[in-house]
């Protein structure tokens, strides 16, 4: 992918992902193609098992497609080495999850610092950046708390701070409000939206809240049986 095409941040073509299983192979993705423009907010709707998470994992650099091509921010993810992929995860992409995936034994601040630990940032820089990120999600008062001492909404805010602390180009959110009540979900979505807008971050949101998706995003994609419809 050429740099001239910088308007497009995600370009996937004919992606498929097959998992070997005992009985029969599971086809999670069956030839998915999509493009996402820089700064766009895209919602991915679909029932569970439709392949949304598989697509997100590939885009997040946690998994590789069985076939097809995928470029994110100009990088051919299928060609990156494991080390380059790890670097990609910590710099280009941020991810948040339905169940937050915070480390229970570490404080909010330490959790947000973690991505920077692995790319070797200086402790002081790291701490400042983490503080700023937590302030940006409105958690400046709870930095020293461990996840167990925070509410669901607060935990997701920590996760958002962690996902954005390295200033990624794209944020992948896998049902970020799925575990939250409606009011909190709206609040979290506000924070997501605000932060993405401010940082010019592209948002790819997996959800099954059709109402939320329709109101808040630029484009809605639907997924069924491993295909985009």
């Amino acid at each position: 992918m050429s740099r001239a095409d910088s308007d497009v941040i995600v370009r996937a073509a004919d992606l498929s992902r097959t998992f070997a299983a005992a009985s029969a192979p599971v086809h999670a993705l069956r030839g998915v193609s999509l493009e996402v423009r820089r700064g766009e907010k895209v919602a991915l709707l679909g029932r569970s098992g439709s392949g949304k998470s598989s697509l997100l994992n590939i885009l997040g650099g946690l998994d590789r497609p069985t076939s097809g091509s995928v470029h994110v921010a100009g990088l051919d993810l299928t060609r990156l080495t494991a080390v380059q992929l790890a670097h990609y995860r910590s710099t280009i992409v941020g991810m948040i999850f339905q169940s937050f995936h915070l480390i229970a034994a570490r404080t909010a601040l330490q959790n947000v610092e973690l991505p920077m630990v692995f790319n070797g940032r200086k402790p002081r820089d790291r701490r400042d950046a983490a503080r700023q990120a937590l302030e940006a999600v409105g958690l400046s008062e709870r930095m020293r708390h461990r996840p167990g001492e925070l509410s669901g909404g607060e935990r997701q805010r920590v996760a958002i701070a962690r996902a954005l602390v390295n200033h990624p180009e794209i944020l992948l959110a896998d049902e970020p409000t799925g575990n939250l009540d409606t009011a909190t979900a709206a609040e979290i979505f506000d924070i997501l939206e605000e932060n993405c807008r401010r940082g010019g971050v592209t948002l790819l949101l997996v959800t099954h809240d059709e109402e939320l998706a329709r109101r808040r995003v630029d484009r809605v994609l639907r997924m069924q049986d491993g295909r985009l419809s």
Partner: peptide, 16 residues
């Protein structure tokens, strides 16, 4: 295992 998964998800290499 979960913690390791989180670390990897946010950019930890195998070597780390």
């Amino acid at each position: 295992t979960h913690e390791i998964g989180v670390m990897k998800a946010v950019g930890a290499r195998d070597r780390h």
